[in-house]
Nucleic acid binder design. Structure first.
Lengths: 195, 195
DNA sequence: GTATACATGTAAACGGTTACATGATTCT
DNA sequence: AGAATCATGTAACCGTTTACATGTATAC
C-alpha cells in the first residue's frame, strides 16, 4: 500500500488538511495515485496514531475549523525505508483493451465512438500537462532537486499521453478498416435484445 | 467491473476450465487485466448462475476432473451491451512516480538501483512482446477481425513498453545528475535508524 | 524424496467505492 | 433561491489479496 506514502510526500511538499489533500489528489498527485476524501481521512487518522504525522487544529472564522497535518519524524523514516524497498510491477487494468478484443465477437464499428471519446479525453489531458509544464518549469536549467523530480514525473505523464493518442489513432484506423469490410470471415455480430 | 467481460472474451476465444483461465490471465490477457484463480472461480460460479456461461464436467485420467466453461448466449448479449456502454478512464496507480517525488526528501541516489530494476523488467517484457508479434503476426496483411484486434492491442503494449523504457532512461539521467551535485540547495537526506 | 503442474476450493483481512449526514459561507 | 465551496465524518458494501486446504501425477 502506498496511499500513506503518497500522503507523506504531499505533506512534505506542503502541510495541509484532509480536505486540502483530497483536492491535491484530484489535481497533481491524482495523476499517478487516486484517493477519495474518505480514504484520506481514514488513513490520516491511522498515520496520526502511528506517529507518522502531527496535527494542529486551526480555528478559522467564517469557515469550519480544520486539522492541519504535517509529516513527522517517524513518517520521514518510514518513507525513507519504503523508498529502499523493491516495488512489484503495477497490476494493470486496461478496460479499453478488453473491449477492443471483445469487439471481435460483436460489431467493431460499435466501438468507434467510445474510442474517439477516450482520444478526446487524452488530448485534453495532454494539453493540460503541456500548459502546466510551461507554467511551472519555464527554465529547466535552474531547478532544485524537488522540482527536477516533479518535472521528470510530469514528462512521464506527457509521454504517456502522447503515446496513448498515437495508439488510439492506430486503434481507430483498425476499427474503420474492419468496419469497411462488410464481410464474411468475421464472427457475425450478436443481436442484443433477442438472444 | 470488467472481470466477467474479460473472462467472456477469453472463453469466446477458447473454452476452458477455471485453472486454464487463471493461466491465461498470467499470460496474454494478464497484460491488461489481472486476476487470481480465487477471483476467477468465484466469478465463474456467479456467471454460471446468471446463465452467462455453460459448464461441462470433463473426466480425465491421471488428472483431476475439470469443469470446462463456454460462453453462452446471454453472456454474449451481456458482452454486447457492455461494449456499447461508456467506460470511465482508468484509475491510475503508479507507485514508482510516488517514489520519484519522494526521493526529493531523501537521497535520490538510493532510487537508482530500483529504477534500473524496473528498466530491466520493461526491457524483458518488450522483447517478449516483439517476439510474440513476430511469431503470431508474421503477415499483417492477411488477418481476420479477431487477429487484427489482438494485434492492435499488442501494438499498444509494445508502444507502452518503448515509451516507458525511454522515460526510465530520462529518470535515471535525472537521478544521476542530482546525485552528482553533492549539494546545498536540496533537502538533506534523513538518516533512517536514528530518527 | 522433493518440487512442480494440474485442479478446485474456503475463510479472513484489507482496501476502495458509494451513499448518507451535517453545517456554515459565498457565488450566481 | 439554489448551487458550489469548505470541512469532516459514519456505515455498508464490494472487490481484491493472502493464507490455508486437499489430492493426484509427473519430473528431477
Amino acid at each position: 500500500m502506498a496511499l500513506e506514502h503518497a500522503i507523506l510526500v504531499s505533506l512534505l511538499e506542503q502541510p495541509g488538511s484532509g480536505y486540502e489533500l483530497a483536492r491535491r489528489f484530484d489535481r497533481s498527485i491524482g495523476r499517478f495515485w487516486t484517493a477519495t476524501h474518505q480514504q484520506i481521512y481514514r488513513v490520516l487518522r491511522r498515520m496520526e496514531a502511528d506517529g507518522w504525522v502531527s496535527v494542529e487544529e486551526v480555528a478559522q472564522d467564517g469557515r469550519p475549523d480544520k486539522k492541519v497535518y504535517s509529516a513527522a519524524g517517524p513518517g520521514r523514516t518510514a518513507l525513507s525505508a519504503w523508498l529502499r524497498e523493491p516495488v512489484e510491477p503495477e497490476t494493470v487494468r486496461h478496460e479499453l483493451a478488453v473491449k477492443i478484443r471483445a469487439a471481435a465477437f460483436d460489431d467493431p464499428a460499435a466501438l468507434i465512438s467510445e474510442v474517439e471519446r477516450h482520444r478526446e479525453g487524452h488530448a485534453t489531458l495532454l494539453a493540460r500537462y503541456l500548459h502546466g509544464e510551461q507554467r511551472d518549469f519555464p527554465d529547466p536549467a535552474a531547478l532544485d532537486a524537488r522540482r527536477e523530480l516533479q518535472h521528470v514525473v510530469l514528462r512521464g505523464g506527457i509521454e504517456y499521453e502522447r503515446m496513448t493518442l498515437a495508439w488510439l489513432d492506430d486503434v481507430l484506423a483498425t476499427l474503420h478498416r474492419l468496419a469497411d469490410r462488410t464481410d464474411s470471415g468475421a464472427t457475425p455480430p450478436s443481436t442484443p435484445g433477442s438472444p
